[in-house]
Amino acid sequence: MREFARTLGIARGTVHTRMRRLERLGVIADHAPRLSPAQLGSPFWRSSTFISRTGSSHG
């Protein structure tokens, strides 16, 4: 949240409050990590399996 606050030029508490409200409203449905294959390294990337929830029903 610190990065969002810095980018938007608002307090972290404000970002937190707004994000929680958006979660309650269903605007933000899920939080997922964004991975960088270059930072993870080739051995890790090749041996990892990721499961996608695309098309599943949430709620």
Results as ranks from 00 to 15, higher is better:
Met1Gly: 13
Met1Arg: 15
Arg2Cys: 04
Glu3Lys: 08
Phe4Trp: 11
Ala5Glu: 05
Ala5Ser: 03
Arg6Leu: 02
Arg6Gln: 09
Thr7Arg: 09
Thr7Ile: 02
Thr7Lys: 11
Leu8Ile: 00
Gly9Gln: 10
Ile10Val: 14
Ala11Val: 05
Ala11Asp: 15
Arg12Glu: 13
Arg12Ile: 00
Arg12Gln: 12
Gly13His: 05
Val15Thr: 12
Val15Pro: 10
Val15Leu: 10
His16Asn: 15
Thr17Tyr: 12
Arg18Gly: 03
Arg18Glu: 09
Met19Cys: 10
Met19Leu: 15
Arg20Met: 06
Glu23Leu: 04
Arg24Ile: 09
Leu25Asp: 14
Leu25Phe: 01
Leu25Gln: 15
Gly26Tyr: 01
Gly26Gln: 03
Val27Tyr: 11
Val27Pro: 04
Ala29Ile: 05
Ala29Arg: 13
Ala29Trp: 00
Asp30His: 06
His31Ser: 06
His31Thr: 11
Pro33Lys: 15
Pro33Ala: 12
Arg34Tyr: 07
Arg34Gln: 08
Leu35His: 07
Leu35Thr: 04
Ser36Pro: 00
Pro37Leu: 06
Pro37Tyr: 02
Ala38Phe: 02
Gln39Ser: 12
Leu40Arg: 06
Leu40Phe: 00
Gly41Ser: 13
Gly41Trp: 08
Ser42Thr: 03
Ser42Gln: 04
Phe44Thr: 02
Trp45Glu: 08
Arg46Asp: 11
Arg46Leu: 01
Thr49Gly: 06
Thr49Asp: 06
Phe50Asp: 01
Phe50Lys: 11
Ser52Asn: 14
Ser52Cys: 11
Ser52Ile: 07
Ser52Gln: 11
Ser52Phe: 12
Thr54Cys: 12
Thr54Trp: 14
Thr54Val: 15
Gly55Tyr: 01
Gly55His: 11
Gly55Ile: 03
Ser57Arg: 14
His58Met: 08
His58Leu: 09
Gly59Ser: 08
Gly59His: 09
